[in-house]
């Protein structure tokens, strides 16, 4: 497999300082250095970024869509975690 196949990398680009790196897509490369170079050519041809992360796709552990309910549903019924849950009198300011 490894003989003829370049690894798949996921590419993350920071568009400017102050913003987080954001996933922009993926590409194949022989190693991480080459992935950075390819990412520069493929994903930043029009000043889209000032910093690039590449991660081998097989190193990412993702939650399963099947676990969506147990993982994320519990937070749906915890409205008290949101500020709008609380009635504060109109006359009370700065809150």
């Amino acid at each position: 497999m490894n003989k003829n196949h370049w690894k798949l990398y996921e590419v993350f680009v920071r568009s400017k300082n102050g913003l987080a790196h954001k996933h922009v897509g993926s590409l194949h490369a022989a190693d991480a250095d080459m992935a950075i170079k390819n990412a520069r050519d493929v994903y930043t041809r029009r000043s889209e970024g000032i910093s690039i992360w590449v991660v081998p796709s097989d190193q990412i552990t993702a939650s399963s869509p099947d676990d969506k309910e147990p993982l994320f549903a519990p937070s749906d019924d915890k409205v008290y975690r949101h500020p709008t849950f609380y009635d504060i009198p109109y006359d009370v300011e700065h809150m």
Binding site: K3, N4, W6, A30, D31, D33, M34
Partner: peptide, 11 residues
């Protein structure tokens, strides 16, 4: 493509 892989392995 092969040379790039060989180089990557060497590195």
């Amino acid at each position: 493509r092969e040379a790039a892989l060989a180089y990557a392995e060497k590195e």
